[in-house]
């Protein structure tokens, strides 16, 4: 295996008494697509800022491209592309100008920046909006422009913090498509998300984080295999009856999660378990058999839902 481009060991960040990131270890290989999955406030963004060489760690070790960000912040950042959670495009500049000024920050000659800006506007499907004001772009377009901006220095590593939060489904799919192309070109991607489908789509490997700690690590498929069953049967009996009925079907399936509005039954065969329930004379208001997802993994690991 090639040497990792990011190595974190016992990486910790505290703010006063609050520990945002609690002694985490992870490595990212070149060309890998690595995800941090967890709910809001899990410490994902803080981790990303440390990896982005803008936030000084409290303790532990961190190496990006073989360099310590404490000593080599600007050097490391010259090789990164960063897509922050909150868009920070310059609204006083037009679309293309945002790319031009940003490219200059890396010391690139104006002619090179201009050439790349045009190519990236094509890539981000914004070529016809090059002269638009940033404010006039939709949320999805702003995100794509931010990604284009992050690519102006042809980064070794692209950091994406919640890249599709707040976007409508169509805009998300366009964005995923673009990110997938980058991945195919060999760009190392590190992304945080609280969307399990996003993690499943984009990540080769991910860590599940909660309260600043890593709860599990693996590929989406292996995490599901390890922490969940093949299928999940979801039944609803009405919020007043759920808990009571859950008690009476305790023996059905491998494991249960009783949520306020529904019961999740983890099993290898959802349809068979549903039949058992109806044979006992119980009629759920709704029932659904689906494949296990990372949401189930998270629920298993933390006892909480990802999106609350």
């Amino acid at each position: 295996m090639p040497q990792p481009v990011i190595t974190a060991s016992q990486l910790t960040k505290t703010y006063g008494d609050f520990t945002a990131v609690d002694a985490i270890d992870f490595e990212v290989a070149p060309g890998e697509s690595f995800g941090l999955l967890g709910p809001t406030g899990a410490g994902k963004s803080t981790t990303m800022r440390m990896v982005g060489a803008v936030s000084t760690r409290t303790s532990g070790d961190l190496s990006i491209l073989g360099l310590d960000p404490n000593a080599h912040g600007p050097d490391i950042r010259s090789q990164l592309g960063v897509v922050p959670q909150q868009d920070n495009l310059d609204q006083e500049l037009r679309v293309r100008d945002n790319l031009l000024v940003y490219g200059r920050y890396f010391g690139l000659p104006r002619s090179v920046v201009a050439e790349r800006a045009d190519a990236l506007l094509e890539f981000a499907q914004l070529a016809d909006r090059r002269k638009s004001k940033v404010d006039d772009l939709s949320g999805g377009m702003k995100r794509r422009l931010t990604i284009a901006r992050a690519l102006i220095n042809e980064p070794r590593i692209l950091l994406l913090d919640e890249p599709t939060t707040g976007l409508d489904p169509q805009a998300r799919h366009i964005l995923w498509d673009r990110l997938f192309r980058l991945k195919e070109q060999g760009t190392t991607l590190v992304l945080t998300t609280h969307y399990m489908d996003e993690a499943e789509q984009l990540c080769d490997r991910l860590v599940v984080v909660d309260k600043g700690r890593i709860m599990a690590e693996g590929s989406p498929a292996s995490l599901i295999r390890e922490y969940s069953s093949k299928e999940v049967l979801e039944v609803r009996f009405g919020s007043d009856k759920n808990a009571e009925i859950a008690e009476s079907i305790r023996d059905i399936g491998e494991r249960h999660e009783v949520l306020p509005d529904r019961i999740l039954i983890y099993t290898g065969n959802g349809e068979a378990e549903l039949e058992q329930i109806t044979q006992r004379g119980l009629q759920p208001i709704t029932s659904l058999v689906r494949r296990s997802s990372l949401e189930d993994v998270f629920l298993r690991l933390t006892g909480r839902s990802l999106i609350e």
Binding site: V5, L65, D75, S78, F106, R156
Partner: peptide, 17 residues
């Protein structure tokens, strides 16, 4: 690229900025 090449590239990339 080896990590050594990456480091060298990063240090070179930091010079102008």
């Amino acid at each position: 690229q080896t990590i050594r090449e990456d480091s060298a590239r990063a240090i070179a990339g930091g010079v102008a900025p």
